[in-house]
């Protein structure tokens, strides 16, 4: 990832492009970045608050619980897809001008990170409305965001190779992402699951990221030391495997572009 340092100007442009272009032709423009998680959370809150709100441990609030889940899941989902698509999508340039291709995947992950950080604002408002207060540990949310970006970039790099080589890998990944989403306690409390399901959900790394994030933001969860270790280990493993796999496979994959 050292290559990124020498291309900071390009990364800045790429992140900016990613952020502004998504909603370029809509009236609200970048305002959608703010509005999107609010609306999604609102809909899910209407649907699920009757069922799950009372199942949370006392002191925890459902609205911020849900919204934190949606924000982090969007970060993971959109970041992963954007990062995995970025290299095939910029194939036209990458086959002609020498730029380390990893830059595109990293920039996509960073753009998702910025979107996530923008979401802190509406989340903070929801936290206060629901009668909680922001945690003193709030800066640790940035640590979660950092590890998540690395996690996303690593998987994105691996997938970008598969996306170029196998057309149907996109569909398979879409299904896997959906399964992952349901195995993450975004809108349900873990306590409603039976013990087998609970242990499966606990082995989903996103659960650990999410627990830490909820706790750091408004003390709305109680992550264990295991969650911290799990977050750091999966993130570093992802980027290590991703960069290695990408480096190894890229030349011959590029020849196919």
């Amino acid at each position: 990832m050292l290559v990124c340092v020498s291309h900071l100007e390009l990364i800045r442009l790429l992140v900016g492009r990613e952020l502004t272009l998504r909603y370029k032709r809509s009236v609200l423009g970048i305002g959608w970045t703010l509005l999107n998680p609010i609306l999604t959370s609102f809909v899910l809150w209407i649907v699920f608050s009757f069922v799950f709100a009372s199942k949370l441990p006392s002191g925890q609030q459902f609205a911020p619980y849900l919204m934190a889940g949606i924000l982090l899941n969007t970060f993971f989902n959109q970041g992963l897809m954007a990062s995995a698509e970025s290299i095939a999508g910029n194939g036209g340039v990458l086959t002609k001008i020498y730029i380390p291709p990893q830059i595109f995947a990293v920039s996509a992950a960073l753009a998702a990170l910025v979107n996530f950080l923008i979401g802190f604002l509406p989340l903070a408002i929801v936290v206060i409305i629901s009668g909680q207060s922001l945690s003193l540990w709030l800066p640790l949310s940035l640590v979660v965001a950092f590890f998540m970006a690395i996690f996303v970039a690593g998987i994105g790099l691996t997938l970008s190779i598969l996306f170029i080589r196998f057309d149907d890998s996109r569909n398979i990944v879409a299904v896997l992402l959906m399964i992952t989403m349901y195995l993450t306690p975004i809108f349900y409390p873990v306590s409603i699951l039976n013990s087998t399901m609970q242990s499966i959900v606990r082995w989903n790394p996103i659960t650990s990221y999410l627990e830490i994030f909820r706790w750091a933001f408004s003390n709305n969860a109680s992550p264990s030391g295991r969650d911290w270790i799990f977050m750091i280990v999966t993130s570093l493993a992802s980027i290590t495997i991703g960069t290695y796999f990408f480096k190894k496979k890229w030349p011959k994959t590029m020849a196919m572009l």
Partner: peptide, 8 residues
Amino acid sequence: KILAGVLP
């Protein structure tokens, strides 16, 4: 591509 340095 090899000349451009994109393809080793």
